[in-house]
């Protein structure tokens, strides 16, 4: 989240993609860093990650891509 705040401050739209376990942590950190809106724009993919198969990982990406593009653009 630190990095993203820095990129946003440089005027670069950024999106954090994280596992669903990170919803609360992302919110807390974004608030502490002074950009609560950034957490609202984060994209969360279903846990778990580390033991997911390659195919499962690609599925997670396919499910997330719309939300990622939406988070980086004005009209989605």
């Amino acid at each position: 989240m630190h990095d993203l705040v820095d990129y946003e401050a440089r005027g670069i739209p950024s999106v954090l993609v994280a596992s669903s376990e990170f919803v609360h942590a992302a919110q807390t950190q974004a608030e502490a860093l002074g950009m609560p809106d950034l957490a609202a724009g984060s994209v969360f993919v279903p846990h778990p990650i580390q033991d997911a198969t390659d195919e499962e990982m690609r599925m997670k990406a396919q499910d997330a891509i719309d939300a990622i593009v939406e988070a980086l653009t004005a009209n989605g």
């Binding site: 630190h2 705040v5 608030e31 502490a32 860093l33 002074g34 950009m35």
Partner: peptide, 9 residues
């Protein structure tokens, strides 16, 4: 209004 100053600022 309360304004939270970011911890790294």
């Amino acid at each position: 209004r309360r304004v939270r100053i970011p911890i790294d600022d």
